[in-house]
Write a protein that binds this DNA or RNA. Structure first.
Lengths: 331, 331
DNA sequence: TTGTACGCGTTATCAA
DNA sequence: TTGATAACGCGTACAA
């Protein structure tokens, strides 16, 4: 007599006519037997898993934990779980994870992984598989996207350095295989041009990853490639930390002899030596927004804006200062 | 004619007698139709989900991302996915997540969450549900556990401070509701006693969480509670960073006027101002070990040691120095 | 108001 | 060597 009745009681979708007595009996029995409904069977029947997949390039990168947290928190509050996938910047892994997530029939995928090929995303789009891109542009005008305004943040950063009086401003760019890397480099060049600062090729060095290590190597090339700049715009905070290390090794004290600006405002950016001046990015909020967007799509709720671009602003801390006077530097 | 044959071809568990022609036909058809097997149905039938659940107190705490990464990487390499659950140090959430993970029939649970009540764990144990504890002790002698040797690390840290000549050594302890917090405090007291350093009550302050903020508050109590110590042993690196901030606010320069030691060696500990002297904990390795243990249990492979206790050692960086001479301090 | 029957997509087993 | 059948545990339309 039970199976369906139990389902009705425990699922209890609104206006069901159930005798209170029956309900009590079921609940009591469930409690007594320690009954656990099988989410598996439920998902199979409903064709819904109440699960989101999330692809991140690297959990170790301090940019991502707050984003993950935002996604996870929003998902949890709405009854969803999160399958976390670390891609290590490998497109093979991205493809593999994407396959697995679809086989598991997750209800949607949050993609914070920046190296993913457009072809892979086009496939998701073609299949009408719900996904949202975080911190990564998209070719599809109808895609769900959460971005920060890289132009705005970069312009503020460069503007700050120019206002301080710097004229030899270097750029340690991010990987040009990522949209973020491309945008921030282009925006930096544009901002320099607009402020009338000349930029030669030697003043730009491209890091092959958004990591401290890659930033260090790129910064070394920049510093040893000619007259070192008095200020450097770094593609993100990890790159800035690498640049800081390279500068120190080259005997350039920061911010006295070289000023740095980063991007993202990672945790504890204010506790480094010196405190990082950087563009603040609301990482947690990005995660929450992304999860909100995709859950709305999954649950077919209205979506006001499919494309969220967040304003970002510079936070000035200890790592920037006016350039030392030439005489002092030479001395 | 197909369903089971398809299963045999695509699953292909070892010694099956299949006509190459049939196999080809199935594979071709699958490719043509873009067939995706349903992991859901598979799990329902097999009573295995190839999924691990993982509970962490807070992804934002830099201790955890490397551990998560280790778990995820090991899980992935063996065909498992990871459902990540952020408990925010709330036992209600822990319980809720644990319920959900069991309803989802994850094959095992990695528990890095330290506040979890023993009752909840006892329940898992009673039901023979596979789990492994990371960085958290256990009452069950047969539990799978991955720990670090808190006594060893703490003894080295205290020893270092004593060797430098410090005699007024404070302790900013971690929450005494956690095993880690208790162990490190007890070990610190024991080490001080052993080295003949007197410890009064006022020299110990307990942080109510393993966070920068809680560390800051606890350190303020310590510093303003009497004669400030010349050195402080902090329960972990976040607490140490909070202590650093409190010390600065009180006008105590580190390491000139006050020396600090932390625990965990979180990312970029060497880039703080000053670089953190801390006990190095192999976080990633802990995650890998934990995943390896639980997967072995799940797949019924032999388990050499159910209880892994890792050696840890102090990494001496810029945040410790010999105590300033009294005359200098007073001046 | 509750019970019955079916199907979600697999895989293990048995029959052919 | 392959096809047929049952079962995993649930939700739902329909019958009672």
């Amino acid at each position: 007599m039970h199976p369906s009745t139990v389902s009705r009681v425990l699922n209890g979708s609104g206006e069901l006519n159930l005798l209170p007595a029956t309900r009590q009996r079921v609940i009591a029995a469930a409690a007594r037997l320690g009954y656990r409904p099988s989410a598996l069977a439920r998902s199979l029947r409903l064709q819904r898993t109440f699960t989101l997949g999330m692809l991140v390039p690297n959990i170790d990168n301090p940019l991502f934990p707050p984003i993950i947290k935002g996604v996870e928190e929003t998902a949890r509050s709405r009854g969803y779980n999160l399958v976390l996938c670390n891609t290590e910047d490998s497109s093979e892994r991205e493809d593999e994870y994407l396959r697995v997530l679809r086989e598991r029939q997750v209800d949607g995928i949050v993609i914070a992984s920046s190296f993913m090929s457009d072809a892979t995303i086009a496939e998701l789009r073609r299949d009408h598989f719900p996904f949202v891109l975080v911190n990564r542009g998209s070719r599809g005008p109808d895609d769900l996207v959460v971005l920060v305004d890289n132009d705005m943040g970069t312009a503020e950063a460069i503007g700050h350095l120019v206002d301080l009086g710097h004229t030899r401003i270097g750029i340690v760019a991010g990987p040009q295989t990522t949209m973020t890397g491309q945008q921030r480099l282009a925006a930096a060049k544009a901002a320099l041009r607009e402020r009338g600062v000349r930029i030669e090729g030697s003043q730009v060095s491209v890091a092959e990853a958004f990591s401290e290590e890659a930033g260090y190597r790129a910064a070394r090339r920049l510093i040893h490639g000619g007259v070192p700049p008095t200020a450097v715009f770094c593609a993100n905070d990890l790159v800035a930390l690498g640049t800081l290390r390279a500068a120190r090794e080259a005997g350039l004290e920061c911010p006295d002899q070289i000023s740095l600006v980063g991007f993202n405002d990672i945790s504890f950016a204010d506790l480094f030596a010196p405190a990082l001046t950087t563009v603040h990015v609301p990482q947690r909020e990005m995660g929450e927004l992304a999860a909100g967007l995709i859950l709305a799509q999954i649950e077919q709720q209205p979506i006001p804006t499919r494309r969220v671009v967040l304003d970002v602003h510079l936070v000035i801390r200890g790592s920037t200062a006016a350039p030392a006077r030439a005489s002092e530097r030479i001395a």
